[in-house]
Design a protein around this nucleic acid. Structure first.
Lengths: 236, 236
DNA sequence: CATCGAGGTTGACTAATGTCAATTATATGG
DNA sequence: CCATATAATTGACATTAGTCAACCTCGATG
């Protein structure tokens, strides 16, 4: 359904940091050819290598970004509401480097890439927001590379748990937001290896019960994980 | 020495994609407090975690970006003339995520970050160039993550050699641009493991003689490496 | 309620990669 | 040109991580 028929969704979009400071007229241009669309779970939205026709915004549900090579696959990120994905491909008018699929029933806004690039040239405030967003994405992947190159898979898991706990109530108890096999892929390991890593973490003060995690000895866990903002702070 | 005393260096800077489309007055603002400076080899220019006071431009020589964690170190990138580094930290006014050191005698331009951010708000053309540059950097690190997560170290080396050959004359013969231990670190492996990988590549049509490399059987090497533009094309 | 199937776990094994120590090659400065 | 330091290589071994197959668990469904 065209976005213009859904003013409440349009308002939601407008509140995103990326779009909040731009001119009204430009926002209208941007959303003119936009659609709000519902997708069932496990739908492949885009495939790596395709031209970037749309900028996507996740309104509800969740989307997995992943990549393939030589029969292998890895999860690059999970996008949750409300945020955009594949902004870089859109502004560069270059092929997607990642594929995307819905993880669950999801509602997305599709903004034609053409419009994003046009408005980008017209609206300085929007351009500034794009820069901030891109810089953020860039730094996120730099941290991701450091994580992969400097840490073992056990250390990556330990830090993932600390980070997730910190950003979700800090109660030392939470439920994993994804299936373990996806978490494994995200962390750059196999499901089997994750299973074993989970077992190993018992001696460092982490209890697993299915999807439920409780950190029983925060100090012990941090001693293993040695978290640093320069890798683990999502806001840096 | 202040950049304004070195008009020829200023001109060189102006030709960079990042600065070529901006207004003259803004370019002057940007370079007002800038310095041209020579550094000996192995000087640590910045350390991760420090506030981003300057945007750096490599004019001559080469600079290694690296990161540390828990007594471990890894090479993230090597910057060669003429290009900038740590743009994202500058525009976000956030701490550096990587450290930098000169690899050899190098000449750099230091642009005060403050000025970069100011001019960014004033000059739409500059803002656009920053976006393009950041999008490029972002996509580069996404490719880097895919490379790390989807390939073994032997495959990474094989692809590195193909890529380097492709972008440097395509003669199937070239000299490694860095020490092997730095190449190893860049590829996410130990020097010992690189030594062994080099040996293994003999059976895939690559001959090493010290720093000199010749590809004797391009087809065989490609069959192992399976290069794809979505990981290996630096321009994508 | 029984069945089915996907995700998860476990064990046994293999492959990839890292570590340490010793040795050899290479480059550099006196 | 030699002395020295650093890089590179090699062998032996340890650790980390992946593979494969079997099995378990749990929820969905007929």
């Amino acid at each position: 359904m065209p976005l213009k028929n859904r003013p409440e969704k349009s308002a939601e979009l407008r509140e995103l940091a990326l779009f909040s400071n731009m001119d009204d007229a430009h926002f209208d241009m941007l959303t003119r050819g936009a659609y709000v669309q519902n997708f069932p779970p496990a739908i492949e939205l885009i495939a790596e290598g395709e031209p970037s026709d749309f900028l996507f915004v996740v309104i509800e549900g969740s989307v997995e970004l992943f990549a393939n090579w030589n029969e292998r696959e890895t999860t690059m990120a999970t996008i949750r509401p409300v945020s955009t994905f594949i902004l870089a491909a859109t502004v560069k008018n270059a092929p997607y480097l990642m594929s995307a699929r819905t993880l669950e029933k999801s509602r997305l806004i599709l903004l034609p890439s053409e419009g994003v690039r046009e408005v980008f040239d017209l609206d300085a405030a929007f351009a500034r927001s794009v820069v901030t967003e891109l810089a953020q994405c860039y730094r996120q992947t730099v941290k991701q590379s450091k994580n992969l190159k400097l840490r073992t898979s056990l250390e990556r898991l330990a830090n993932y748990l600390i980070r997730y706990n910190d950003t979700n109530g800090d109660n030392n108890a939470f439920t994993l937001p994804t299936e373990k096999r996806r978490l494994a892929s995200y962390l750059g390991m196999t499901p089997e290896n994750l299973s074993r890593a989970i077992k190993s973490l018992q001696q460092y003060g982490v209890m697993f019960d299915g999807q439920h995690v409780s950190i029983t000895d925060d100090k012990e866990l941090r001693q293993l994980a040695k978290p640093t903002p320069l890798i683990d702070d999502p806001n840096l």
